[in-house]
């Protein structure tokens, strides 16, 4: 295969490149919305992609979570016991469904994850207003399949972390200066498909419902 590598690269390198097109990366057609407007746009965009949005505060979000779990008749919910959000949930778990923790490598409980878990609760790394997008940086505490396998994904986002655009989020969060996680996800609604007659249907392979709590 090394042969293939060298053949391909040497063919590419013999090509004559006469002019390169100037590329201005810092062109600023970027917007700068007020935080209120960003939150409003974020909400509108996510709602138009069939996500459910709840407004809450630092104090009320746990009640919102309880309300969501009850309204959906959830029997269990997967969460991280070690994030500050998870710790708060564990302390106030009386009105919540059975709490499940992702504390084992997936190989040891894949079947249960795929068949037995009804919902997962995760934090987010930020949000994008103009597309209505959650940014997730899954890690050892909140593994990536939490936002993929359970039929309901409940995510909490701090309004202060909603950026105007993806381009702005990259810069503001200094993505190119840090070691990137194994997997970064931008999530903009529940799973969907329009492969049949270009007609939208939700809940194809990922979560059927995306619920976002803004604090």
């Amino acid at each position: 295969m090394n042969d293939a590598r060298n053949t391909i690269l040497s063919r590419l390198k013999t090509a004559s490149i006469d002019q390169t097109m100037p590329l201005a990366r810092n062109i600023s057609n970027s917007v700068n919305w007020s935080s209120n407007y960003k939150v409003q746009l974020f909400r509108t965009q996510l709602q138009s992609a069939q996500a459910e949005i709840y407004d809450a505060t630092d104090h009320s979000w746990l009640m919102t979570l309880q309300h969501i779990c009850q309204a959906k008749y959830l029997k269990n919910i997967l969460l991280s016991p070690t994030t500050s959000w998870g710790e708060a949930i564990i302390e106030n778990s009386t009105n919540l469904p059975s709490l499940k923790y992702y504390d084992d490598p997936v190989e040891n409980w894949k079947q249960t994850l795929f068949e037995g878990i009804e919902a997962a609760f995760t934090s987010t790394y930020g949000g994008i207003a103009d597309t209505g997008t959650l940014i997730l940086w899954p890690d050892t505490q909140e593994p990536r399949m939490m936002s993929l396998v359970p039929p309901v994904h409940i995510a909490v986002i701090e309004k202060s972390k909603i950026y105007n655009s993806f381009a702005e989020a990259l810069k503001a969060q200094h993505w190119n200066e840090t070691e990137l996680p194994a997997n970064i996800l931008l999530i903009s609604g529940p799973s969907k498909s329009a492969d049949i007659e270009q007609t939208l249907t939700y809940g194809v392979h990922g979560p059927k419902e995306l619920v976002v709590i803004m604090v």
Partner: peptide
Amino acid sequence: PITTYVNMISSP
């Protein structure tokens, strides 16, 4: 404006 998922993989 964006797809439901943008999946950025940087390592195993």
